[in-house]
Design a protein around this nucleic acid. Structure first.
Lengths: 190, 190
DNA sequence: TGCTATTATATGATTAGTCCTATATAATAT
DNA sequence: ATATTATATAGGACTAATCATATAATAGCA
């Protein structure tokens, strides 16, 4: 399970609470592995049962107590094992391609609108990706070494390059559709 | 829900059974929207309750009876509505990027092995994608018009182009790592 | 002769994840 | 003065999907 190991990954740097972990996810891996707050807490409970992490409860004045989780030796070994393991084939699910697949029954204008919507969503996502370094540089430097920062930045570079390729294809396809490369509808159903 | 609407999409062409639908999914949209057999049957039951499809049970000699589903008028309208609707932002989950993100603690050789594994999975997937047209041309032509085939082929073209971009980035990154662009590990933990 | 694949539908159990809500205090913003 | 945000944990309900299994006849293969 990826969330389990992502949590182990963060705890390898430094002990953290569920609350800290949620912020760490949002500031760094959210764009390719978002994590729900309640699921982080439930997963921490499971990791504790499994003996991969251990808790220390720290009381605070006028604040809820912090449950600080840290890696055990077994947790460090499990993390290492997972990091060097071949993962099951990636699951690809692209709902807008389902729209495209069945869009032959729509008018050319409606189909173009679909592609424009997808292009706009992608542009917004790309912009957000470009702003990630500014937003989390401090965070990254506080926790990671230069070597670790390098790989953090690699993941962002990958996502940006792939999204640029996606957007390029979509923009090219919009051109093709505007030049009416698609066969016309034959007869009306519905 | 995407599976619901993908089923409506197939039934728009022609009435089908759950068994037929499973084959249709596997031959066409599986590479961006795989569908589990049991989930198809459960979804058909739900679609019937909702009044978007209706069943006709056809008895056979020495075979289980076929439950043939066809679109109702409400189903046709729902499909059209969904095809022209903006979808919620796509969910991106890339487990191997989580490996890369936390791989600073591994040796350079181990990291290269990670990228090689991902590259090989992608190459296999690309090969399979290239074989899709041969495998399902007959299928596509039997059901769809030239206009519909055009959009079927568009979805495949998209996935191939994106996978090629992914593979290009990964191969480039392997080069960078072989030239030791990554900062070295500072001190050993664990 | 026995094994597997094909046709056809369906249920049970489980998993990974989302969304909503509860609780409680302090600080900040409008 | 009031509302929102930040800090901090956690449970309930639900959803989409997977995996395994059951049933039952026929056809093809080794």
């Amino acid at each position: 399970m990826t969330l389990e190991h992502a949590i182990l990954g963060f705890l390898y740097y430094i002990p953290l609470t569920g609350y800290d972990l949620k912020k760490a996810f949002d500031a760094s891996v959210q764009h390719f592995w978002p994590a729900d707050q309640s699921q982080i807490y439930r997963t921490l409970a499971r990791l504790t049962e499994q003996g991969w992490v251990e808790v220390q409860v720290v009381q605070q004045e006028n604040r809820p107590p912090r449950h600080v989780y840290s890696l055990t030796q077994a947790g460090r070994e499990e993390l290492r094992r997972w990091l060097t393991t071949e993962l099951p084939p990636e699951e690809i699910r692209v709902p807008w391609l389902v729209q495209v697949f069945f869009s032959g029954q729509l008018s050319d204008e409606e189909i173009l609108a679909t592609f424009e919507r997808v292009a706009n969503q992608l542009r917004a996502r790309l912009e957000r990706a470009h702003r990630i370094p500014e937003d989390s540089t401090a965070y990254i430097e506080a926790i990671g070494s230069p070597r670790e920062s390098f790989f953090w930045m690699l993941t962002l570079d990958y996502r940006i390059k792939v999204m640029e390729a996606e957007l390029a294809w979509i923009e090219e396809t919009i051109q093709r559709l505007q030049h009416k490369e698609q066969p016309p509808a034959e007869k009306q159903r519905s």
